[in-house]
Amino acid sequence: MLPFDFDYFQPKSLKEAVELFRYLEQQGKQPMFFSGGTELITLGRIDLAFSDAVIDIKNIPECKVMQYSGDYLFIGGALSLTQIEEANPFPLLTKVASEVADHTARGKITLGGNICAQIFYREAVLPLLLADSQLLIVGPEGVQTIHINDIFQQQLKLKKGELLVQTATERRFIEAPFFTVKRRQQWDTGYPLITIAALKIDQEFRVAISGLCPFPFRSQEAEAYLNRQGSMEERIDGALSVLPKPILDDVEGSAQYRLFVLRNLLYDALVALE
């Protein structure tokens, strides 16, 4: 039961969506793009999210693609995680996504929604960070293609009125060997204590992490250590010494314990990919 109401729009094209956003804003509204909408519904209920003009992008064809074009796999931002899992075009993404929330909820949660979420785990972004994905973004200035590392810093830095349309990922990353584990406080349910995703490309490790800091990240500094010569322990110590801050210290687990878990997971990732 949301304590507020909104106008609801279902544009059929990107152009219409973007123009609608601008128009509504000019009218003094607080428009919001909506694909799965699970955050607006659940956080709105407890007064942590608000919109009075919802623009549902699920009917826009570009937001629903899932296909290769040349060497690139395009995945629409409005596809549900379940749809992506069932089709399984990107095994690492499938594996990471399949640990988000639960199966039924993933039928509603979308790729774009997860990446742009307020809740800071945003795990679906991890494979994209590792795979040098390109993001197709549409906004008042038209469509742009941006390398994920240039626009995802802790969160997706969208400007007002911009919308994530698709992700594009090169085939060689999709076919690269990978490793991923989601470790929770206990058993198989709940937010991540640590979710780690790792990939080996051009003989180099890449690693991205959610749950360690209040944002998901890929750390090239940590990777540099992991890719050095030396004992496993030294390499991991090095990687742990250059982690971003702050380390989460909350009800899911203390900072020190998270580091303990991460150390072991890094070890497992290295073993699996070496």
Partner: peptide, 24 residues
């Protein structure tokens, strides 16, 4: 829970399970 957590409101939409508290 009205929060998509418990599944008590699950229905089928186009043959797939859906938590009806998570859908407008």
């Amino acid at each position: 829970c009205l929060n998509g957590d418990c599944g008590a409101c699950t229905i089928n939409v186009d043959g797939w399970p859906m938590k009806s508290c998570l859908m407008l």
